[in-house]
Design a protein around this nucleic acid. Sequence first.
DNA 1: TCGCTTGTCTAGCGGTGCTAGGATCGAATC
DNA 2: GATTCGATCCTAGCACCGCTAGACAAGCGA
Lengths: 192, 192
Amino acid sequence: MSVQERKERERAERERLIVATARELAEQQDWDAVTTRRLAERIEYSQPVLYSHFRSKREIIGAVALDGAAEMAAALRAATSAADGPRARVTALARTYLDFAARNPAVYDAMFQLDGGLAFAKADTPEPLKDAFAALLESLGEVAGDGVHPGLFTEVFWAALHGLATLTRAGRLPPEDTEPRVELLVDRLAML
Amino acid sequence: MSVQERKERERAERERLIVATARELAEQQDWDAVTTRRLAERIEYSQPVLYSHFRSKREIIGAVALDGAAEMAAALRAATSAADGPRARVTALARTYLDFAARNPAVYDAMFQLDGGLAFAKADTPEPLKDAFAALLESLGEVAGDGVHPGLFTEVFWAALHGLATLTRAGRLPPEDTEPRVELLVDRLAML
DNA sequence: TCGCTTGTCTAGCGGTGCTAGGATCGAATC
DNA sequence: GATTCGATCCTAGCACCGCTAGACAAGCGA
């Protein structure tokens, strides 16, 4: 039994290595640079090994996305729990969200731009994704305002953040004015 | 001279055919289906002909994006000029924007998701893109509120719309609640 | 020590974007 | 009207992609 356990442990470790390396490569260069050949070379195994862990390259992207979602949820909770009062919480949340997207562009792409084969807003949505949305909901729900469904409010606020994040990173919005944009968004959308 | 003119005319026509066919193919299937081989086959020329018009596939995407921007600007202006009062204008603008994105997903992707090699928010930004932003600015600038720069306000509102459009289309947001989301966005962001 | 399962690699398939070089066709010249 | 010549287009092929079949070796239980 112990032998089998060791093998399973090694397999799990290698799987983590694959995901971490894919993320690293995507972050260092971009997702186009993450080919199965290059990825295999970096983990010092042959290509088919990747396919003994994941059914497709898409699933690898999905795994990176799940890691990212967990990290983002943690970052959001850390920021909001350190802030005093609803207004400070929402501002901290917005800044942290945009900061995460700016600092981890490849991971953010895996989560929201690329096809990682993940289900969203459905029953079979993976836990980390649901939890990341929950992290948003925790701070945003309290400023939705009377008669506005907290979930709906969170969706709209999130969409605004997502729009700012993607348009800025794609060069569609000049990055200098991020801070006043955040202030405007918080001032207007949240009922404080 | 007439011969040369005819040839130039035919060349321009073929270029339009390439762009229109790329768009059609992307809209019928998706951008992954738009390979240079398939595109060449559809226009009934060989692959290299594409490269006598465009330096790369990316430039073809860019051309589709420019067409789309012009169309979107026209749609936005038509909708807002038919509306009475600032509130109705902003609501019409938001609905039209999201409607355009939903009805022309491939074009919207070419404009904002894919790399069409276009410059944004820069001096050398192509005219149709600047004009589309101008169309947004015309209706949104008047509801920015005192002391808020109209351009900044437009950027934030646009980002929110973009976020709603992309997240909805990617299945990240359930599509049913689009209308209440638009209402919330207009109610809160615009100073009416 | 043997046999066998399990794991890994080599090699290759059909596809991609893109291009070099030859063939062809039509316009201008004699 | 024949001939030259340049523009135009196509065939063929490059290097790379995601993915997989089948050969092979290593390590296990008997």
